[in-house]
Design a binder for these strands. Structure first.
Length: 465
DNA sequence: TCTGGGGTCCTAGGACCC
DNA sequence: TCTGGGGTCCTAGGACCC
């Protein structure tokens, strides 16, 4: 009842905080001389571009372009290139989220670089703390508040963010786009206070609406729906028929009716995948076995972290679809006798599985594993004929996880994952683990010029601070 | 030579159950 | 001659997201 009253008195306000060019910004935090310079970050294996600074975007570098097609442009234009450094990005992400959490009790961490913040109650407390009447608080309060958040995140983490505010998540997404694209907004835009909302919505192409992908965009345009305003005002029956309930919710959200609630705590995953492309074609079963063992280890670790066990393991292998050579793809489902989260048991089945689907004579590009049928580890139904000592396994896994958490990733691992495997992915341009490894901390030197120091990753002198 | 990886939700249809 | 109604679970495929 109380909740209801709040929402009736103050219209809902959701902010979407989105880090600008997140991966590129992360690289900049520890290398300030890259400020204002073009940066690209590459996918695993240094395959293709997955993030660009605005300067790189201005050079016309497209998302997803294979790196090898850009080498010339990159050299000519002095673009800084980085392999992805997920450990660094993950750590900076946590710092950004922790900072945001200070500004609302109610938020959803939506992705590594985005969070939805409920600011509905905040408006009311702003009214109290600034002794403003309701109108003054809503017209100046939230935007000012968002600017405070933005400045604080920048100050504490070095990451620039944009903030969009609307009545619903979908509108907050749109507001965020404007905050980012429109220089006048200076990083913050409150759609609720916009004098001409319809005009704003009319300026947003339908493909840019959250939830409209390429397929739906084609369908909508054929129907004469080209922008967010037309989508908001279109025939709902048609939408439901063509875009299911998902599309209908989207239209409601555009109208300002919240249909997508904030997910306060992330729900447990329903499947966990781990897969990688190889740095070079692999032909030997031995190498494939090593790779699936490594991926299973990683997936099992994630599985235990969320307190689940898996019923099913899928292994797959494939050749390189971009190559004009014999192709092969095969996957295999393995049902565990008893749901498990034990790495050694999974490795056993994964190796067996990959051997079954392996065909000699192909040049393999990628293998992977999926853990499916995940259930909480306290809900396991035993098997009468199971003679495995599962308590002992679980204790061992707990210990392995603790050691690795304390001493660093992969400190203890199974020999089956290989020693110095020759299929491991390429990361030629990775920056140091500035924030998660004692040996790779950034050094601040009082002397000038600074003395070089060794780094274990990217040895480009730009890292000598 | 070189083209990423990891998720979610919804629907329709079939098998099966009482 | 007449052959119900209401479920669940699973899977595959299609769409989307970062």
């Amino acid at each position: 009842m109380a909740r209801h009253n709040v929402s009736r008195r103050t219209p809902p306000a959701v902010a979407l905080v989105d880090c600008n060019n997140f991966y590129a910004s992360c690289e900049r935090v520890f290398c300030p001389r890259l400020e204002g310079k073009p940066i690209v970050v590459l996918s695993n294996n240094d395959g293709c571009v997955i993030a660009r600074s605005s300067e790189a975007k201005a050079l016309g570098i497209q998302m997803g372009t294979p790196f090898f097609k850009l080498r010339e442009l990159i050299r000519r234009s002095g673009v800084s290139v980085f392999s992805s450094n997920y450990e660094l990005y993950g750590d900076l992400s946590q710092r950004v989220m922790a900072t945001l959490a200070q500004y609302t009790p109610d938020m959803e961490v939506y992705s590594i670089d985005e969070a939805f913040l409920s600011l509905t109650g905040i408006e009311r407390s702003l009214q109290c703390s600034f002794h403003l009447n309701r109108e003054a608080a809503t017209t100046t309060g939230l935007e000012t508040y968002a600017r405070m958040i933005r400045a604080r995140v920048r100050q504490w983490t070095g990451i620039p963010v944009s903030i969009g505010i609307g009545e619903t998540k979908t509108l907050a997404k749109i507001a965020n786009r404007i905050a980012k694209k429109n220089p006048d907004a200076e990083g913050v835009f409150d759609l609720r206070q916009s004098p001409d909302r319809d005009q704003v919505l009319a300026g947003v192409a339908v493909d840019d609406v959250w939830g409209v992908g390429s397929r739906y965009a084609i369908k909508l345009k054929l129907r004469g729906i080209h922008n967010a305003l037309q989508l908001r005002d279109c025939d709902e029956r048609w939408i439901q028929k063509e875009m299911t309930i998902v599309g209908l919710r989207l239209v409601q959200e555009l109208k300002g009716i919240p249909c997508l609630p904030l997910e306060r705590c992330p729900p447990a995953k329903k499947g966990i995948t781990s897969s990688r492309s190889f740095s070079r074609p692999v032909t030997e079963l031995r190498d494939l076995k090593e790779s699936v063992s490594a991926y299973v280890s990683r997936a099992a670790e994630k599985l235990r972290k969320q307190g689940s066990v898996a019923k099913i393991l899928t292994v797959f292998l494939m050749t390189n679809p971009f190559k004009n050579e014999p192709q092969y793809y095969k996957s295999l489902n393995i049902v565990f006798p008893v749901p498990t989260a034990c790495t050694s048991e999974m490795i056993h089945y994964a190796r067996e599985g990959i051997a079954k689907i392996f065909r000699p004579g192909y040049r393999y590009k990628k293998t992977g594993v999926m853990l499916l049928g995940l259930i909480p580890n306290h809900a396991v139904q035993g098997n009468f004929f199971d003679d495995h000592d599962r308590k002992r396994d679980a204790a061992l896994m707990r210990m392995v996880d603790r050691i690795n958490a304390r001493m660093g990733k992969g400190m203890v691992h199974y020999a089956a994952t290989g020693i110095n495997p020759n299929w491991q992915m390429r990361r030629e341009y990775r920056s140091p683990l500035f924030t998660t490894d004692w040996h790779q901390l950034a050094h601040v030197s009082a002397s000038f010029p600074p003395r070089p120091r060794p780094t274990s990753g990217n040895t480009d002198p730009q890292f000598l601070i």
